[in-house]
């Protein structure tokens, strides 16, 4: 059956809770809505559904709602929720799973810039083995079309010698590329 939330109609995925328990090992069904996670979350104010509501939406089978939410991208994996949860629910691990599923499903992500930044960061590792800030940030600026924010800060860092110009590739780059092939490329295919 479908449920009606105050701000959206949701399609019910009755096995969603079991799917998450099976895929992550996190016992989301233990949540009794004490809200300790949300009270300690540094970014709850910027989420559309705070962490305790994520647990409730899982219980309701609101898979599509969560895969399309801002929340899963705003989470910075600080793990304060997990540290304080009386039922030892690792919400951070659940967020990782939901982000991965959202990317694989190719859903329209409301926080496109965060997803883009993670992807470009990962692509930078694929290209060099290590992160080269200058190329990663330049790609981010071009692709996010966010050309002007922080230009002053970027220039300051550059002048202080904190952003090296030239990237260096690691010798074992082929191994790193293979890791990407067996994980990222296998799961996302042409969506990546």
């Amino acid at each position: 059956m479908d449920y009606q939330l105050s701000n959206c109609a949701i399609k019910s995925a009755p096995d969603f809770s079991n799917e998450i328990i099976g895929e992550t090992g996190v016992r989301v069904d233990r949540c009794y809505q004490c809200m300790t996670c949300t009270l300690g979350c540094p970014v709850a104010e910027a989420m559309d559904y705070p962490p305790n509501q994520v647990m409730r939406l899982i219980d309701l089978g609101a898979r599509e709602v969560l895969l399309g939410s801002k929340t899963i991208w705003m989470c910075v994996s600080c793990e304060n929720c997990f540290a304080r949860c009386p039922n030892e629910i690792d919400t951070g691990a659940v967020m990782d799973y939901l982000r991965e599923e959202a990317t694989a499903a190719g859903v329209k992500v409301p926080e496109e810039r965060i997803q883009l930044l993670h992807r470009l960061f990962a692509e930078n590792i694929r290209a060099f083995g290590k992160v080269h800030e200058a190329t990663m940030l330049m790609n981010y600026k071009l692709k996010s079309r966010d050309f002007f924010s922080d230009m002053g800060l970027g220039l300051k860092l550059f002048l202080k010698g904190k952003i090296p110009l030239f990237p260096a590739k690691i010798a074992g780059l082929d191994k790193v590329k293979k890791i990407f092939g067996k994980t990222y490329d296998k799961k996302f295919g042409d969506k990546s």
Partner: peptide, 28 residues
Amino acid sequence: DWNCCGAAAAHSIHRDLGLALPARNIAQ
């Protein structure tokens, strides 16, 4: 010849990528 650990980005986009990148450093 260590590689990037994946930082916040790798596990945020693919969980096994976030484990395998640091694992290569353990192998090194």
